[in-house]
Design a protein around this nucleic acid. Structure first.
Lengths: 343, 343
DNA sequence: CTGAAAGCGCTTACAG
DNA sequence: CTGAAAGCGCTTACAG
């Protein structure tokens, strides 16, 4: 291993544009022009080729700090997400990072854990960024970040009014869930809600309520839990212990559905024979559950990718339009007609 | 929203140390000294205080690019992991990022998805980093990254020979699993192996084989699958279809165990009555499964944290020792004595 | 105790 | 077509 700062023969191990210039017998500015792809019409093709070859041979890579200082730019953007451990946000990150890298940008994730920016012991990276993409939060939570080009993801119309936004059409997804269950014959629903004050969950809850209300004879009870298996089990249990218990549990999230499975099993209810259960998101756990979970697939990676594209457009002075990405109902084996009988 | 480069009253919106100097009536070097905390004995306390107050009032933050250029440092390190979507690596990231932030370092994750560095379309971020932490890979996979201070995580003794390393004591963990099952009375084991050529999985497999071999009457069959539910189900199924089928399935990973659950259910086997199953890692899915999974908890966050600490030490010229973090057997309800009978 | 100056490695007018 | 020079905003000898 050779350390970055090490010198070989009294010379810096990492060549600069000056070194390339010297080796190629041209001026440093010519090197910069050529490698910055601004040479056509200003440098002869032969010289350009020589410079390129010399740079390649010496393994030259421009110094990012110098470039950033000169240009007043950092080529890095901040991705603000509630948590990186949830597979959903991992996918958002991948989508964003992929588009970013294609455009020579780096993505730094913040905050690195579940602690919010406020009161966080973490150094504030917002000093060295060109823009911000925030997912699944309110504009309010972004106050600590100061002014910077901003794109909001999965944050609803309020955020969309203040910044270019990419959302999911979660209401459509939820309506598809209710329609699917209604078509199977269900009328008594339980909503296992995420106890998280975010637009995306309010929208899911409102859409479920509206869709059930539009159903002749439809009823909906609700219990909220944290997005965590045991809290969800407890919430779902409350619904299942109702005197007139629901025949279908609509969960705001796949992990919540895992908790609903536990609550059902604890009561000797078999899914989907005695109880139908649905999730939302379609993360890996949906297919790990037994029976596999009927859920709404949210294109998380696409969300990140489109968010980054919008930020890129914003950075270039454009006005990217806000948009909504459709979800897709994925019917698996956790849903079936309600049990016949007195229910 | 105000863009970073915007000017107000013909003046750059973001103050520099020169602005602070002018406002405080001192030289720019004094500002730098004071804010860099190198002023004691060189600047009078009164002046220092005045500078600090002025900087605060103007909302001054040093320009990172200028600082990096001058210092030849970037204050960012690369975290190279196989994938960010696996909850395990999310935890590693959090641990590393937490320690990094406490020391004013940023962490950039690479590669942003499952594609390896080789042939990846992603820009190479290794041009602007101070060091690298790589988790769960071979030194070989790091060839593209050139020389940089390096710490290896969860990569075994071969890596530890070349760089400071933090590993898990996975062999101990696997021995604890076998001992636990043996104490329950199991003798016929199946090993659902991860089809991943990494030290950590080879070590798990070898430790399981050795521990079972040391058991009077112990037998071990093996089947490998990708770390993905359906592939795991298929691998576990092969083991369960053996003429003399195992009474316990030892899985290299919790997700593999989820597949084993499916294989068992598909054959009408009830866990743990007819079959015991164990996992490894203790990620969220372990508790989402029904019954909850007996597994080995690997302190992933601690791995990231200790890795970053080691890198910090390395960056300061030290020689951090390699070390191994103990796992912990977590006994839940997926393990029980083997069924009595001809088995 | 304080300031003027050099220089990190780039990009980009500007002059020729 | 090519080069000399300025300057981005810092840190750190150096001079006083």
């Amino acid at each position: 291993m050779t350390e970055a700062g090490e010198t070989v023969n009294g010379r810096s191990a990492r060549p600069t544009s000056k070194d390339v210039a010297q080796a190629a017998g041209v001026s440093q500015s010519t090197v910069s022009l050529v490698l910055g792809r601004k040479w056509t019409g200003r440098v002869s093709p032969a010289t350009a080729r020589a410079v390129q070859e010399t740079a390649e041979r010496l393994g030259y890579r421009p110094n990012a700090a110098a470039r950033n200082l000169r240009l007043g730019t950092t080529r890095t953007v901040l991705l603000v997400i509630p948590t990186i451990t949830a597979p959903f946000f991992g996918a958002v990150y991948i989508g964003a990072a992929r588009v970013a890298a294609r455009n020579g940008l780096a993505v730094v994730v913040y905050p690195p854990d579940d602690a919010g920016p406020a009161g966080s012991p973490f150094a504030a990276p917002q000093d060295a960024i060109d823009g911000i993409i925030a997912s699944s939060m309110t504009l309010d939570a972004l106050r600590g970040f100061g002014p910077a080009p901003l794109v909001m993801l999965d944050s609803g119309p309020a955020a969309a009014g203040a910044a270019p936004a990419v959302d999911f059409a979660v209401e459509d997804g939820m309506r598809a869930v209710v329609a699917h269950l209604a078509a199977l014959g269900h009328r008594r629903f339980g909503h296992v809600a995420a106890a998280v004050d975010e637009w995306t969950f309010r929208a899911r809850g409102d859409a479920a309520a509206a869709a059930v209300a539009a159903l002749p004879g439809g009823t909906l009870d609700r219990a909220a839990g944290r997005i965590e298996v045991h809290s969800a089990k407890e919430a779902a249990g409350r619904l299942l212990d109702l005197p007139h218990r629901p025949t279908a549990l609509i969960c705001d999230d796949d992990l919540l559905a895992a908790g609903a499975y536990k609550a059902a099993r604890a009561r000797g209810l078999e899914i989907p024979r005695d109880l139908s259960v649905t999730g939302f998101d379609d993360v890996e756990i949906a297919r790990a559950l037994e029976p596999e979970l009927t859920t709404v697939r949210l294109p998380a990676q696409e969300l990140g990718a489109q968010g980054m594209s919008a930020l890129l457009e914003l950075l270039e002075g454009g006005r990217p339009p806000s948009r909504a990405l459709p979800g897709e109902l994925v019917v698996r084996t956790s849903t079936a007609p309600p049990p016949a009988g007195p229910g």
